[in-house]
Design a protein around this nucleic acid. Structure first.
Length: 972
DNA sequence: CGGCAT
DNA sequence: CGTAT
DNA sequence: GCCG
């Protein structure tokens, strides 16, 4: 073999590739991206093989299985040499390997499914751009034919050399097994003439297994104002519309998952040609024009005959409401646009190289056509998770069988909840002397991997999955299944052992998971024979859930994200309010609207803890939460406002028109009320509650330390319950999130008012042990009169400003030492940013005067008192406690800022901004014009009993607000 | 159509 | 981006 | 989603 000039890597790759080939395998190229930096110069096969190599390397380093195919051993040795050889190349490779190892733990090798149709690429473009020449080039690899104007679509079966570089003979060796490897595909040329364009468009919509479109333009005719530019843009616009529509249909079986388009700027060799970047921008500019005139219907007749004319009118290319068209707007429809220059007739091979590369990308295998995946995954839930991440929806064959059996025998499905006992986790949360230590280092990874390999689900135990569930139970469902191809996940060992045996071994012992790919429009099929979410780790249920609730892809197709609203009401309410003049709807008959309810800001009106309309309000709160989880912050704002408004209404609502009178409520709110009145519930709430995704998001969102963003992030990783988080993501959680997960249930347990007061008393006592003279107010929900609280908010203040300075660490340390506080989640310096002292928030503060005060600590609390005779360990549950320290001079502001409901707080801030041009927060009030601190409560002197309440009242007064008792600030 | 608490 | 009200 |  010719070794001298070849890097060892290459040799090894080819050896490996040969083995892969012998087994009829293809490497899954979604790995390609990660490897590109290494193999950019040899795009195709080598990078694929490299992807596999990383797996070998990984298992070598982690040497857990001692199985190594002897056929590969020598190569591996060579490879290892290279890696440990301090050559720059070896080093670079080693680094890349190390970085990408986790990615390769999953699916790696795929066998191509028996596709009935070859992957197809369409060639489209105006006449004279050189399409046919390009076709011929690709077909023959080298010599473009001379031009002729094509009349009908021309199809050529082409072979893509797996290694493009091979064409230029750079790395080719005589014995190279990759020489013979070609991937076949169809290249369809379409006529360029305007009158024949419908052929091209029909091809886009009708071609099965369409992988991409190449739009060829003549770069010499694209100068500004030239007719060629206009024509090309025109054509491209219509083409993109067709593609957009196709992709927009989304779920239809025909639409590909993604549809890349290459704009091949031809004839770049001529000096009159526009550079590729310019081609792109001028096409974008021209398409913007086309788009505008199309939407006005002006150019309707200009384009072509027939089909597109009638339906075209209401179509808009790209992002709705966008001023300028950009190719990037097509991403939303999974259409990636790439512009690359080249030259069909060029002598040098590089002239069309970028086109080649694009084509290989478009033709790469994707998991959806795979039949077998091999990976280092031993357990089914993990497989399910990885598949979710790859958006590969399958139905577990095992669970389908169970369904079938159930139907026949009426036997119960043995719901053996297959969650692994979470022993692996114990290493992470250690309990020592009643004080929990969250172990943050990665030391437990080892166990996890180990427990993964030895898990009960993996290995031969799985053997009886399908083949051995013998014909004695000839369920029809099962028989149907046999006919449909399934997607199998096997342990890598199958590959190793196969190579060793020199033949493809039966998969029985290696099968980790077998599933039936879900054909997209098969939803009804699923929902009829499946009971969605009952079984926790049931892949079937998850597949169903996923199929049903994929709002992200479904809605996002149209318009921009801002208008993405999950308003998929099943029972669609009438869109206009019926104005039947029954006595209930007669505005005259409504109870008089209290004058405070004409007020726009919720801080201007009393809002009691309970309202006659609590039931309706609770439904609205659920919609609000749904808005939050769907990243619609503005929707949250809107619902907060209207909830606060309704909560302040002292009468039971009787009609939708009555709702319209309330501030923050409008048509939409009235309709919601109407629906509530008629059905006793709200369709959107029902939808949300039945939505598996929303359930999961809510569960995550309820973890302390996890907000809506992170909840969605967890979901997108494929996690579906807290166990998934613990199993797959524990090391990546922040410390407080780990605590949040650990005490999930305890933190959600309501705290009775008496316990709240008890905790307050303990904190006050200990504060006074440090510095006597402290005063304490329990703020938060408890102060508003809630019989149960979610957490405890203790505000401490002291007449002496020196006492409150830097007090938070003192008190938390003491409480921690005494054992009341088990964890400090967060020490906050929020107030210190502006300081205890009056200081302009705009101008940089003068240094030196006590700005290092920590004003609050968020801690985990547990009562240390328990009956030691009865219990060995402390049985009390963990509580969330906030300890807030405020200097005396702003204590009124502090208490006010910590006592109102969220909406009350917002509206208070909005109010002082609008009415006074002030800026309020719990550390005080400032003037927005000059940033000066305003002393609102200085007129209250002394520090005796009742002074704090007086100070708070003073703040209301100075703001021009009527006093509201804390229990009148329950805005929700 | 911009703004929406700090 | 999380927390607090 | 409502207000100015």
């Amino acid at each position: 073999m010719q070794v001298a000039t070849q890097p060892l890597t290459n040799l090894f790759l080819r050896a490996l590739y040969y083995n892969v080939q012998r087994l009829g395998l293809h490497i899954h190229p979604y790995l390609q991206k990660t490897i590109r930096p290494l193999s950019a110069s040899q795009p195709s096969s080598c990078s694929l093989v490299l992807g596999y190599l990383q797996l070998l390397f990984w298992s070598r380093v982690n040497d857990r299985e001692s199985v190594h195919p002897s056929a590969l051993m020598s190569s591996i040795k060579e490879w290892m040499h290279l890696v440990f050889d301090p050559s720059p190349l070896g080093l670079a490779i080693a680094i890349i390997l190390a970085l990408s190892i986790p990615i390769f733990l999953h699916t790696v090798v795929f066998r191509a499914s028996g596709l009935t149709t070859l992957p197809t690429i369409l060639l489209i473009g105006p006449s004279g751009s050189g399409k046919t020449a390009l076709l011929t080039l690709f077909e023959r690899e080298n010599k473009p034919a001379t031009t002729h104007t094509s009349q009908a679509p021309l199809t050529a079966e082409c072979s893509l050399p797996v290694d493009t570089v091979a064409a230029s003979n750079k790395y080719r060796s005589v014995n190279d097994p990759t020489n013979q490897v070609h991937k076949k595909f169809l290249l369809v040329d379409t006529p360029g003439h305007g009158k024949l364009r419908h052929h091209a468009f029909q091809n886009v919509t009708n071609t099965s297994n369409l992988r991409g479109v190449i739009f060829v333009v003549d770069a010499t005719t694209l100068g500004a104002g030239e007719e060629g530019l206009r024509e090309a843009a025109d054509y491209l616009h219509d083409l993109l519309i067709v593609m957009q529509k196709l992709m927009g249909e989304g779920k239809s079986s025909k639409a590909p998952k993604e549809l890349p388009i290459l704009i091949a700027a031809n004839k770049m060799d001529l000096f009159t040609a526009l550079p590729a970047a310019l081609v792109k921008s001028s096409l974008e500019r021209e398409i913007t024009k086309v788009r505008v005139s199309r939407s006005k219907g002006l150019l309707d007749s200009g384009v072509g005959l027939g089909d597109e004319q009638d339906e075209e009118k209401d179509d808009w290319l790209g992002e709705m409401g966008s001023e300028d068209f950009k190719f990037s707007q097509m991403e939303e429809f999974d259409i990636s646009v790439e512009v690359a220059g080249g030259n069909v007739l060029g002598a040098d091979g590089a002239s069309t190289e970028s086109w080649w590369r694009w084509k290989i990308g478009a033709l790469r295998y994707n998991i959806h056509e795979a039949e077998i995946a091999v990976g280092k995954i031993g357990r089914k839930p993990r497989v399910a998770m990885e598949l979710r991440r790859l958006k590969m929806t399958t139905i577990d064959v095992e669970s389908l069988e169970k369904e079938g059996e159930k139907k026949e025998s009426g036997a119960q499905a043995v719901s053996r909840k297959k969650r692994k006992t979470r022993d692996g986790k114990r290493g992470k949360i250690e309990i020592s002397e009643g004080k929990e230590v969250i172990n943050l280092d990665g030391s437990s990874t080892e166990d996890e991997t180990a427990s993964e390999t030895e898990s009960e689900d993996g290995g031969p135990a799985r053997k009886k999955l399908k083949s051995s569930t013998e014909p004695s139970t000839p369920s029809q469902a099962k028989k149907d299944l046999e006919k449909i191809r399934t997607f199998k996940v096997l342990k890598v060992d199958w590959y190793y052992d196969s190579v060793k045996a020199g033949k493809i071994l039966p998969m029985d012992g290696y099968l980790v998971y077998e599933g039936r790919p879900v054909q997209e429009p098969a939803q009804d099929l699923i929902s009829t024979n499946a009971s969605p979410p009952s079984r926790g780790s049931d892949i079937l249920a998850r597949a169903v859930a996923d199929a049903k609730s994929s709002p992200s892809t479904a809605y996002m197709k149209h318009g921009n994200a801002r208008y993405h609203k999950p308003t998929k009401s099943v029972t669609r309410p009438t869109h206009l309010l019926h104005q039947t003049t029954s006595e209930h709807d007669d505005p005259e008959k409504f109870p008089p609207l209290p004058d405070y309810l004409t007020k726009l800001y919720s801080c201007e009106r009393p809002t009691p803890l309970h309202s006659p309309n609590d039931e309706f309000i609770n439904l609205l709160k659920k919609i609000k939460t749904a808005r939050q989880l769907n990243s619609d912050a503005i929707g949250v704002r809107a619902y907060s406002t209207l909830i606060a408004s309704i909560a302040a209404y002292p009468y039971k609502l009787t009609s939708p028109t009555e709702v319209l009178r309330l501030p923050g409520c409008d048509q939409k709110t009235a309709l919601l009320f109407q629906q509530y009145q008629q059905t006793g519930t709200l369709a959107e709430v029902t939808d949300v509650e039945n939505d598996a995704r929303m359930k999961v998001l809510l569960d995550f969102y309820n973890i302390w330390g996890v907000g809506d963003h992170t909840a969605r992030e967890f979901y997108s990783r494929g996690w579906r319950d807290r166990d998934d988080i613990i199993e797959y993501g524990w090391e990546r959680l922040t410390r407080v999130q780990q605590i949040g997960v650990k005490y999930y249930d305890e933190f959600l347990t309501p705290i009775p008012a008496a316990e709240v007061e008890d905790i307050g008393a303990v904190v006050l006592k200990e504060a006074n042990e440090i510095i006597p003279g402290y005063q304490m107010v329990i703020v938060g929900g408890h102060r508003r009169g809630k019989p149960f609280s979610g957490d405890v908010d203790i505000m401490l203040t002291h007449p002496d400003p020196e006492a409150t300075l830097n007090f938070v660490p003192l008190i938390t340390d003491r409480l921690e030492e005494l054992g009341w506080v088990t964890n400090v989640l967060q020490h906050s310096l929020a107030n210190s940013a502006r300081g205890q002292a009056p200081v302009a928030y705009k101008s940089p503060r003068p240094s030196g005067s006590g700005f290092d005060t920590m004003d609050k600590a968020l801690v985990v609390w547990r009562d240390i008192r328990y009956d030691k005779a009865k219990h060995e360990k402390n049985p009390n549950i963990h509580r969330r406690v906030d300890i807030i320290i405020t200097p005396w001079k702003t204590a009124g502001c502090g208490i006010l800022g910590w006592s109102g409901g969220t909406t009350f707080q917002r509206d208070l801030r909005r109010y002082v901004r609008k009415v006074k041009d002030w800026k309020f927060d719990s550390s005080g009030m400032r003037d927005r014009r000059d940033g000066e601190w305003l002393d609102l409560e200085g007129s209250v002197v002394g520090w005796g009993e009742g002074k704090l309440r007086e100070k708070e009242m003073k703040v209301f007064e100075m703001c021009g607000l009527a006093w509201r008792e804390p229990w009148e600030r329950c805005t929700g």
